[in-house]
Design a protein around this nucleic acid. Structure first.
Lengths: 153, 153
DNA sequence: ATGGAATACATAACATGTTATGTATTGAGA
DNA sequence: TCTCAATACATAACATGTTATGTATTCCAT
């Protein structure tokens, strides 16, 4: 499958600080992402919503929360900020009066087109020097962790 | 905690989900960690402070912020909550009137003894099925990412 | 010795997320 | 049909983190 010879800098020490490492990487990545997005008027938390609503798609808030993998109240407040900033539009669902349908505004659509190049650039920065094999190994290991953690929920 | 999710249109097969994977793992790990810590009366953000002040060590707020790798205002508010909750004590540094010296209270010391087993258990959960080699590969790759991202700051 | 830069901390405003809880609407079974 | 559970959303309270900014103190170069 994969071999230690292909991983430079291998140390054989205990990953006692695994969570610190992933947390640090997440915060660093988000920090750099926010810097890039600042030029486009977007924030990192908005990206899943913009992605989910691309191509004129219409979703209610529950579907957006599921897609973004956050709780419903978090999505409610996020969408309130995005509506305030003119990125999305909310209107009542005519078929279900509990539900609110969300769409991108033209400005939201326009700004969301900047996301892909920004994410590509940052991902390449994070994985600088990684061989394709190393990328695959990393993703495989991370997916196994996700699976293990989700099984504990 | 910010949330970076899968962005469409990135063609690289697997690593396009890198930030989504690490972010999801971080949130999942933190969620499970908070559940465990709830029994001990601690919160996840407090752990670096408790660790840094173990064995009666005395540090000022700047040193704690550096250790925890967060900004100074974040540490100030964190320490205010921890002081409110009786985990730490703050007193003026007699040798530098700008500085505040922080120590653990007896209760903080007592509660902090629960951290290591909790973290070990959760880390083993996250890395369930990993061989020692796979653990080291993972840590090595994550550290390379940290290094690449930090070089962009 | 002193004046200006650097340092340590605090505060405000905010984004992002979590629980807990309340309200209105919908749906489903007796 | 009617009641009761489930669903969708909102709100409150909070933790954790970020910038931006202000204040007080200390350090250093002249």
């Amino acid at each position: 499958m994969y071999s230690i010879h292909m991983i430079p800098g291998i140390r054989m020490t205990a990953p006692s600080q695994l969570s610190a490492l992933t947390t640090r990487n997440t915060r660093l990545f988000t920090l750099l992402l926010e810097r890039e997005l600042k030029k486009t008027g977007l924030r990192s938390g908005q990206l899943p919503v913009l992605q989910a609503l691309q191509d004129g798609k219409i979703l209610n808030q529950k579907a957006l929360a599921d897609f973004a993998d956050i709780e419903q109240p978090g999505m409610t407040t996020l969408l309130a900020r995005m509506e305030r900033d003119g990125l999305i539009q909310r209107e009542p669902d005519p078929t279900d009066r509990r539900s609110t349908l969300v769409t991108l505004t033209p400005d939201g659509q326009r700004k969301s087109r900047n996301i892909v190049p920004v994410m590509e650039h940052l991902t390449n920065t994070a994985l600088k020097g990684f061989t394709p094999l190393e990328r695959d190994i990393l993703v495989t290991l991370l997916e196994r962790i996700t699976s293990s953690l989700k099984s504990q929920l």
